[in-house]
Design a binder for these strands. Structure first.
Length: 255
DNA sequence: GTTGAGCGTT
């Protein structure tokens, strides 16, 4: 009963996926199943949820066995108030039925068999208007965190950028996944030995030059010499930074 | 406990 999306796609052969948006965060697949099943044969209902929190993302995917039924549900359930919220039902762009959808246009059996008297309903009308216009609403934190999280998995260069932690409000939130960075760094440093719990200062310095740019490592020495010896100008920028702000607070404080 | 554009899981 509540196995929707729990064990992956059950039977996807010629099912059409419908995207249900604007649903409440408390709405579950079980709640949408009877609603959509009334208008057609629902093969599966899947609601993407957060893997960390487990909360619904606010939209669901309903798989219909036939397109005509799916479209019917779209017209019937689209705009229906569910749980006090107006849900939006439309054909999903990506998914098992994406093969039959091109550029948002349904080129399914309609083109294959024009004799299909069942599928006579045209594409969404006003829904297209919304898609056409460049209207954009203010971003929400829910989306922000998701974007960041998604990038985390997709973008593997994020760690490089992480180094340049210039400014970022609400850093505590990233602390959660910051551990990944720590683990990575720890691994790089330990390289198979030493535990993150306790590290030897000597060892840390040994590996420090390996990871930290040489500019800082030889900076103090070279700068000291240069400052008293030559071209204070080239040292200006560096000295300022060192004076104004520690070049690597985490290097000193964290470790 | 909150939020509100969008496109998904084994």
């Amino acid at each position: 009963m509540s196995h929707f999306g729990r064990a992956g796609p059950p039977d996807i052969r010629d099912t059409f996926s419908l995207l249900v948006l604007n649903i409440t965060f408390r709405t579950t697949a079980d709640d949408l199943f009877p609603l959509f099943d009334k208008y057609g044969k629902v093969v599966d209902v899947f609601i993407p949820r957060d893997r960390r929190t487990g909360d619904s993302r606010g939209f669901a995917f309903v798989r219909y066995k036939y397109q005509d039924e799916a479209q019917k549900a779209v017209e019937k359930l689209d705009g229906r108030v569910v749980d006090g919220r107006e849900i939006m039902v439309q054909f999903a762009k990506y998914g098992p039925s994406a093969e039959k959808i091109q550029k948002g246009r349904i080129v399914e059996s309609a083109s294959k068999s024009k004799g299909s008297s069942r599928s006579r309903s045209p594409r969404p009308r006003y829904r297209d208007e919304y898609r056409d216009k460049d209207y954009r609403r203010s971003r929400s934190r829910s989306r922000g965190r998701y974007e960041r999280d998604r990038h985390r998995g997709r973008d593997r260069d994020y760690r490089h950028r992480s180094r340049s932690r210039s400014v970022s409000p609400g850093y505590r939130k990233e602390r959660g996944r910051g551990k990944y960075d720590d683990e990575r760094r720890s691994r790089s440093r330990s390289h198979g030995s030493a535990s993150p719990a306790r590290r030897s200062p000597s060892r840390r310095r040994s590996l420090s030059p390996c990871k930290t740019p040489p500019s800082r490592d030889k900076s103090p020495d070279a700068r000291n010499h240069k400052e008293k010896s030559t071209t204070p100008k080239s040292v200006s920028p560096r000295g300022q930074r060192a004076d104004s702000r520690s070049p690597s607070p985490r290097s000193d404080a964290n470790e």
